[in-house]
Amino acid sequence: MTTSTVVKAESEQAPPRPARRRARDRLGPPWFFVVPALLVYAAIVLYPSVSGIVYAFTDWSGLGDWSFVGLKNFDTLFHDEQALGALKNTLLLTVAIVVVQNAIGLALALGVHTRIKSRILLRAVFFAPVVVSPVMVAFLWKYVYNPAPDAGLNGLLGAIGLDSLRQDWLGNPSLALWSVAFMVIWQHAGYSMVIFLAGLEGVPADLHEAATIDGAGRFSRFRYITWPLLAPATTINLMLSTIGGLKLFDQIFAATNGGPGYATETLSTVLYKQAFVFGRFGYSTAVALVLALFVAAVSLVQIRYLRAREDQT
């Protein structure tokens, strides 16, 4: 196909990477410029984080003395029904958020990457929820999800004759997790949109022109030009939304506090409650450590796969 030939030809013309690296070395600032920032980062982030790991092997309550308990906290964690339920919820939420948020983000980016007059306004409108505090978003959506038949979303459904779709959005244990997922997607779809938009800006217009001359339709141009060249933006979006989904806390804490029952409990809410509500800092640190390792592992696998995809294009 012509389009793929064009893409390949351009990549062949790219300068070899070592030369690029050498040029960067000559022009870049000296390496020791990073030392002050690194020291601050080490003191504020690395040292507390690494020293905190020790507590994962203790019975510390958050107050007073503690003693080592070996791997007991990890043994408890892998037999803890509540934590395993929270892990399942976390994974379901993450998959829903990664897939739907990025699909909507891409659709919005394609929509506002046109010549329509209101595109600047629309970009601002779609991005606006991103700048609102997650806790504020949760409180706002608690109003939207009011279970009263004449309030919020239920009121809207009633007004357009869809009374049968009225729900107890946050109170129904079977529905609450998806209501939370929708709330998070609503807030962050604009963020994905901006990253995809940046990717779209980098797609050369002449490729589209050439493909159009060759008779490629709109879908073919997206499939063979836009989508492959959006690979870096896709990598970033998938990485960020996966990490965000796995760490999700604020919106859940403010909207449902993990309830009803344990229906929206995630690993982050479990570790918060274990530490600050139940006074089990040792166990909570073990949960945090497992979560951090899990996020790191998922991110590494994801980035290797997506980078490989980028190299193929």
Partner: peptide, 19 residues
């Protein structure tokens, strides 16, 4: 311990939701 009370909250919500 401090977990009994929050567990009570959660099981009541589950009972109300017939879970």
């Amino acid at each position: 311990n401090a977990e009994v009370q929050p567990t009570h909250f959660s099981v009541i919500q589950e009972l109300l939701g017939k879970k």
